[in-house]
Structures are given as structure tokens and as C-alpha cells.
Design a protein around this nucleic acid. Structure first.
Length: 502
RNA sequence: CGGGGUGUAGCUCAGCCUGGCUAGAGCACUAGUUUUGGGAACUAGGGGCCGGAGGUUCAAAUCCUCUCACCCCGACCA
């Protein structure tokens, strides 16, 4: 049984990932090192994710705003841990003009204070917050922005880690620690719901251990998803920043009783990395499989034109099917249908749409025109598995079909994560064995998540690094029993998730 | 920043070691013919400053020097 994508997932998972991106026409490398060009189909997915998440962010009382791309260098210096975390990967603007010298453009007009291109916006938004917050009546301040950020990463992979990426970053200020922590938890829940309901991912939520925290945060919460190669993908994070950034940016307010206090702030973000997560969660050996909720088109109609004289009637019929189906609703919106009228062979078209992961394909040909029928294919079934039905039946069932596909993908993702999460690993040797491939020459897909006892210390992080493992999170659900840390053997009541990660 | 590698058609590459006809193949592209509920076949065609600069030579994609870019392994990476 040959597949549309070569190599297959089992043969070479990283290469398969690259090939799916190419075959589905999602994105490509740009002339600028580490940056990507997001093509219409890939950007369409991001727009759907944005739309869903933006609605959820607004529904929880947040407002969108926009802050500058450039941040004065001195702002970054204000928070010590933040400097440590981001200084090494900042793009820096030092000049503001170009002059021609010997036919070459050279930078001149050196800036008195260099600007950095935002790697994240805590400091520049903090500056605004300090002006906006005077009284407890100004709190909570609930702001979100959609933007791009730059982190000068050494090694990049399309969507998963690029030098520039698109994201949203929420920034809020609160009067009390309790309120800020509640916000941090609320936004993590919003992320989880968006990822599970819209992207059909299955995520585990919990808290990062100290050494994995966001630079400057007191608490970092995260959503961790399992990819089909059983590695973890950090899909979103939500941070309680304590008063660290409030002190750095001077965000103070007068309380009801008249005293002056620093605000408690939070920040939270998800990025275009989610698109990578969708590819690696739902893709198969024939290419991408898109959950209907985030597919730029849910249905594509492919006219079958065996003879030129059929063209007029078939195309007309295809439009008729389109208008019937696009009148239907899915998830509260009209179904998005495209008729693929391109002048090329039907087989090519068909496979292109399979590789792009469009949830439902409908073929209409001369025979269907006379019988008022269509042929319907689902991306969650085999490529050749077809259902014959009338236009009326297609119209009546399309919404259900999309719901089923969404549910099937969701179930697959949940099954994968549950199947490969082990909670019976008791010591370091077992851990090591679980994460060691049987074939070191050409490692097979192996490992998964291990839920095991964990005593937070530097020693753990270092020893895990040898196995290329990390503590993904300390899950919220803890049974409270006592055991010995898988790494150090120390007694502890905390369990964590150990895994290889992207 | 260390170690290794690669730059030749839109893409994937051969040719380089051992210098020598007009620089090649597959895919993609264009046209024609046949085919058609399907990832078609044949024929013809377009497309290259062989990454850049310098050198050796009668002669350089090929040898030498320099340079630039990218890739892989490390280091780095909420």
C-alpha cells in the first residue's frame, strides 16, 4: 500500500513532517535565515485558530491592543531573570539610516540607545501599564495583542521553532496574588479548551518545575501535547509573574484603604507552533488531515470532466452543489466550500486535496448531473472509500459528517496520549530503558510520557539532559501518595511528566 | 563559536578524483496527439555567467587561493 508522502512517519518522522508541509503547501523557507514564508493554506489555518482563540479571549473579558515592535534596550535590563533568558537571542537595531558608499548601502545614523526587536513584550507593555494603572479601580487590566516576535534561534524548523513567529500574548495586571493566579489558571483553561475543541489536540495541563519556568515568572503553567512520534510539544504557556515585572516597570496602584502597592501581573501566549502541532498530531502518510473547525475550506468540490462537451453542465452542477452545501451551518458558521475549477487532471486534483487535508471532498461528474447525485469522500477514511448520495442527502448530512471527523481526530489524539503514557516506571533504569530505542542506528518511534515521582532539584535537570529528556510538567491531578524520585531516589509526593520534547 | 558537508535548470541530483566536443538526467513547465469517474502515455520544446572573486593552463563545472551562503552534528533553545 503506497502512500502520498514519502518517507512515511515510521520510516523517518522528522523528514515526513517536512514533506507534509511541502505537499500541503503550508509554508516554505525564506531567504532570511530561520524565517518562514507562510503560504495561503498554512496562513488560512492560522487565521482559523486566531478567530477561535480571539473569540475565547474576548469572551473572558480581555481586549486587544497593539504595542511597538521595538523595545529600548534598557527596558530589557529592568528584570534580571528576563535578561538572562532572552538577551542571547535578541535581534538588535543599532542604526536608522542607509547611505550609499561605493555602490553599497551601509548603515549610518547610529542610535544613541539600541532598540531590540521584541522577543516578547512584558517590558514594553509594562511601561504602558505603569501609566494606565493608578487606582485599584483601574484593575484588573486585561489586554491581549496579536503580533510577531523574533527570537534568534540557532536551529529552526518550520512552524515549530522559527526566528520570527506569529502569536498572541496576553498581559494582565491585578490587585492581588489570588486574582492574578486565578487569571493564570483561567487562561490555561481557555487554551486547553481551544486546543481540544478546535484543534482536536489532546493536552495535559500542569505546572513547570522551577528550571523550566519563563524567565522572571513565579509560576509557569503549560499545555503539553503528545505528537505521533510520542514526543511532547509545549503548546501554550500561562505565567504568574508575581510583582517582579510590576516592580521593574513600576506598576503601582492605590488600594481601597489608601495604601500604595505593586500590581500582580500575568502573561500568556500561544503561537504558530500550534500549526506544527496540528500537523504532527493529525497528519498521516497521505499528508495533512485538518480538523474541520480549523480547515480554511471544509469541503472541496472536484468536477469530473471526461469530455470537453461535459464541461459546461458539470461546472454548472458543481456550483449548484456548492450553493446547496454552503447554505448549511457547521459550528455556528456557514460551511466553506470551494469548487476546484482548475484546468488539470482530476486525479492530481484529488490527491492535492488529500495532501492538503481538506475534511470532505465531493466529486461531481456527468452521470451525477443527470441523477442529481454526488460522490463524497472523507479525509478520516481511506482515500478511495466513497459514498454515493443525492444532493439533498449531502446537504442534510454534511454538518454531521464534519462533526464526526472532528470527533474522530479528537479521539485519535486522546487515544495516542493515553496509550503511550506510562505510570508504572519506578526507577532510573526503567526510565532509561523506556526512552532508549531498540535500534540505535535508525531509532524507531519509541518512548512517550512517563508519569513518575519527582523531587525538584538541579541534579534532576542535569541527569535528564543526558537522556535528552525533560520534565514537561507537574500535572494538576496528583494522588498525593509518597514514593521515590525516579532520578534522585529522594522521597517525594509529587509526580511529574517526563518526556522527550520539541 | 567548534567539527563535518554541500553549492550545476523551478526542484532532486549526476559530472569533479584523472582538466578537453555545443554541460547532462529525472521530476516540474509549454505545445501537439492519444487517453479519461482519474495521481496517464508518447512526441516535440523552453529554460544554466556550474554560488562569487582571483589564480594556474593552449584549455577550468573539474586543479589552487580567498570569499559568501546554506545543511548536518555539537553548543544554544518558556
Amino acid at each position: 500500500m503506497s502512500s502520498a508522502i514519502s518517507p512515511t512517519r515510521n520510516d523517518d518522522y522528522p523528514e515526513w513532517y517536512q514533506q507534509v508541509i511541502k505537499a500541503a503547501d503550508l509554508a516554505e523557507a525564506s531567504p532570511v535565515r530561520g524565517c518562514m514564508v507562510i503560504k495561503p493554506w498554512g496562513y488560512g489555518i492560522w487565521e482559523k485558530i486566531q478567530k477561535d482563540l480571539d473569540r475565547r479571549i474576548k469572551a473572558t473579558g480581555h481586549e486587544n491592543a497593539y504595542f511597538p515592535l521595538f523595545i529600548p534596550l534598557s527596558y530589557l535590563e529592568k528584570e534580571a531573570a528576563h535578561v538572562e533568558g532572552f538577551a542571547k537571542e535578541c535581534a538588535v537595531v543599532t542604526h536608522h539610516r542607509l547611505e550609499e558608499k561605493n555602490g553599497k548601502l551601509v548603515p549610518t545614523g547610529e542610535l544613541e540607545e539600541p532598540l531590540i526587536v521584541r522577543p516578547t513584550s512584558e517590558t514594553i507593555i509594562g511601561e504602558s501599564f505603569s501609566k494606565w494603572v493608578r487606582s485599584y479601580r483601574d484593575l484588573p487590566l486585561l489586554i491581549n495583542q496579536w503580533c510577531n516576535v523574533v527570537r534568534w534561534e540557532m536551529r529552526t524548523r518550520l512552524f515549530l521553532r522559527t526566528a520570527e513567529f506569529l502569536w498572541q500574548e496576553g498581559h494582565t495586571a491585578h490587585a492581588t496574588k489570588e486574582e492574578a493566579l486565578a487569571e493564570t489558571n483561567l487562561m490555561l483553561k481557555v487554551y486547553k479548551e481551544c486546543m481540544e475543541e478546535a484543534l482536536a489536540l489532546s493536552v495535559l495541563t500542569g505546572e513547570k518545575p522551577e528550571h523550566e519556568r519563563f524567565p522572571g515568572a513565579e509560576v509557569t503553567l503549560c499545555c503539553e501535547a503528545m505528537m505521533q512520534d510520542r514526543k511532547a510539544l509545549q503548546a501554550g504557556t500561562s505565567h504568574y509573574l508575581g510583582q517582579n515585572f510590576a516592580k521593574a516597570s513600576n506598576i503601582k496602584f492605590v488600594t481601597e484603604s489608601g495604601t500604595e502597592e505593586y500590581a500582580h501581573t500575568t502573561s500568556w501566549g500561544v503561537s504558530t507552533r500550534l500549526v506544527g502541532g496540528v500537523i504532527m498530531t493529525h497528519g498521516d502518510d497521505d499528508g495533512l488531515r485538518l480538523p474541520p473547525r480549523i480547515a480554511p475550506k471544509q469541503v472541496v468540490i472536484i468536477p469530473v470532466i471526461p469530455k470537453p462537451e461535459n464541461q459546461g453542465s458539470v461546472l454548472e452542477y458543481a456550483e449548484k452543489v456548492k450553493s446547496a452545501i454552503s447554505d448549511e451551518f457547521y459550528n455556528g458558521e456557514k460551511i466553506e466550500v470551494q469548487v476546484d475549477t482548475r484546468d488539470m487532471r482530476g486525479g492530481d486534483k484529488n490527491w492535492q486535496w488529500i495532501k492538503k487535508g481538506v475534511p470532505v471532498r465531493i466529486e461531481v461528474g456527468p452521470r451525477d448531473v443527470s441523477e442529481d447525485k454526488v460522490v463524497l469522500y472523507r479525509r478520516d477514511k481511506e482515500p478511495k472509500e466513497k459514498s454515493f448520495m443525492t444532493i439533498g442527502e449531502a446537504k442534510g448530512s454534511i454538518s454531521d459528517i464534519l462533526n464526526q471527523i472532528q470527533a474522530n481526530y479528537q479521539a485519535d489524539a486522546r487515544n495516542l496520549r493515553e496509550t503511550y503514557t506510562r505510570s508504572d516506571i519506578e526507577n532510573f533504569n526503567q526510565l532509561k530503558e523506556f526512552f532508549t530505542p531498540k535500534n540505535p542506528e535508525k531509532p524507531e518511534i519509541h518512548g512517550g510520557f512517563v508519569l513518575g515521582y519527582f523531587f525538584d532539584s538541579k541534579e534532576v535537570a542535569d541527569k535528564l539532559k543526558e537522556l535528552k529528556l525533560s520534565v514537561r510538567c507537574i500535572p494538576f491531578d496528583q494522588d498525593g501518595t509518597e514514593g521515590t524520585c525516579l532520578i534522585t531516589g529522594k522521597k517525594t509526593k509529587i509526580k511529574a511528566i517526563f518526556a522527550k520534547a520539541y
